[in-house]
Design a protein around this nucleic acid. Structure first.
Lengths: 218, 218
DNA sequence: GCTGTTAGGTTAACATTGTTAATGTAAGAT
DNA sequence: ATCTTACATTAACAATGTTAACCTAACAGC
C-alpha cells in the first residue's frame, strides 16, 4: 500500500455528483421547490442515498453556500482590481451585481434565506472569516478602510464596517427587491443594472469628502 | 328588514378571525413554517373551513399583504408631512425604518417573501395603485417627482420611478440584511437605525444638485 | 483465506404538508 | 313548504423530508 490510494470503493465521487446536481436544480427551480427525490432521480439513486452523504436538505444548502461564498470572494479578487479604493468599491459593486444577475436563485439562498441554526464549519470560519482573499465582505471592508485611511471620505464616515454595510445594503436592497417584487405588476420597475449602478454612484458621491471624485459610468 | 342588516348567519366574522390568527402566526413563525392545520386549530375549525374563505394559503398571504400595505401608506401620510419634498423623502425613510423595526416579521412577509402567483384583487388595484393616500410606493414616488420638478436633483436624475426605487432599495437592503444575517456572527453589524439613516442622507446628498441642501440628523 | 467492520446502497414505511371530493346542515329567500 | 346558498365536517389524496431495517461488497487484520 503506497499510502496514497485512499478512495474507498472505486471512486466516491457520488458526493460531488449530488452537490453538482443540487446546485443546478436549486439555481434553476429554487431551493424550496426542489425535492430530495428529484435530486436522487437525476443522479440515478434512491433518495435515501443522499442521506449517507449529507445530514439533510438544509445541510446540502449550507455546504453549497459555503462554496459559493468563496467563489464570490474569488470573483471579487479577480475582477475588482483598481488600486484606487473608491474605484475598487464601485468595481466590487459591479461584480456583485453581475453575480446576482447571473445566478439569481443562488443569490436568493445566499443572501435572502434565513437559515435556521446555521451550523458553520469551524475550519471554514477559521480559514476564511476576515481574509479578503476568501471572505467577500472582508474584501469590501478593506477597500472602505483604505478609502477612510486615505482621507477620501467625509469626516463623520470613519467606521469601515458602517461604510461597508451601507454600500452592501444599498446594492443588496435594489437586487432583492427585484428578485422578490419584479414579477408583480404593482411598481413600474426600472432596469436593475442601471438603477443599482446609479445608486452606488450616488452613495459614493454622498460619502466622499470631494464629491467630484466620484467615479462615473456611461 | 331595514335593509342594512346584511350579516348572513349571525356574524360571518370567521373570515376576520382567520386573517387575524394567520397574521399573528406568519409574523411569529414565518410563512412557510405555519401550516393550514395549525391556523385551523387555533381558530377551532377544521383546515377545510379555511378554503371556504380563501382560495389557498398563498391567497391568505396576499390578502394580509394588501391590508398591511395600506396601513403602511396611512403611516406615511400621518408622519411624513414636511412640505419640502427632500425633507419629506427622509421622513418617509424614517417612517419606513420605524415600521420595520417595530414589526420585523410582518416586514419579512411583506417585502422579503416571494409570493407564488400573486393574484391581486382587481378592485384593490383600481382604488389603491398610484394613489399616494393608499399606496406607500406612490407616496414616495410623488415626493421624488416634486423634488425633480422643483429642480432640486441632479439633471441626470429625471425619472421619478428610478429615484424612488433607488431610495427604497437602499433602505430596504439595510433592513433586510439585518433581518436575515444579523443573528449570524460573521459580520460585525452596526446599529440598524444609524446605518440606515446615514445611508439615506448620503444618497440624498449624492442625488441633490446642491449637496449642501441635504437634511441632517443628530 | 477467513472474518469483522464499514461505506454506501436499497426497500418500505412514517408523519406532515397543501388541497379536494363528497357530504351534511341550517339560515334566508321564494 | 321548498329551494338555494353559505359554511362547516369527515375522509382521503398525492407529495414532501426523513428514518428504520436490511443488503452487499470492499478493505483491514489475523
Amino acid at each position: 500500500m503506497t499510502t496514497k490510494e485512499r478512495r474507498p470503493h472505486e471512486l466516491h465521487d457520488t458526493r460531488e455528483k449530488i452537490l453538482d446536481v443540487a446546485r443546478d436544480m436549486f439555481a434553476h427551480e429554487g431551493y424550496e421547490s426542489v425535492t430530495m427525490r428529484a435530486i436522487a432521480e437525476r443522479i440515478e439513486l434512491t433518495p435515501t442515498a443522499i442521506y449517507h452523504h449529507f445530514k439533510n436538505k438544509s445541510a446540502l444548502l449550507t455546504e453549497l453556500c459555503q462554496a459559493d461564498f468563496q467563489k464570490l470572494a474569488q470573483h471579487f479578487n479577480a475582477s475588482a482590481v483598481p488600486a484606487d479604493p473608491v474605484e475598487r468599491i464601485l468595481a466590487i459593486g459591479e461584480a456583485y451585481l453581475y453575480f446576482a444577475e447571473k445566478h439569481p436563485s443562488q443569490y436568493r439562498f445566499m443572501f435572502m434565506t434565513v437559515i435556521p441554526d446555521p451550523e458553520l464549519d469551524e475550519d471554514y470560519v477559521a480559514t476564511t472569516r476576515g481574509n479578503p482573499e476568501r471572505d467577500a465582505y472582508a474584501f469590501l471592508r478593506e477597500a472602505c478602510r483604505e478609502a477612510i485611511e486615505a482621507g477620501r471620505l467625509r469626516p463623520e464616515m470613519k467606521n469601515p464596517d458602517e461604510v461597508a454595510q451601507m454600500l452592501w445594503g444599498g446594492v443588496h436592497g435594489m437586487i432583492s427587491l427585484h428578485i422578490v417584487k419584479s414579477h408583480e405588476g404593482w411598481v413600474a420597475w426600472c432596469d436593475l443594472r442601471t438603477s443599482a449602478t446609479q445608486l452606488m454612484i450616488a452613495m459614493l458621491r454622498g460619502l466622499l469628502k470631494n464629491p467630484a471624485e466620484a467615479p462615473t459610468r456611461p
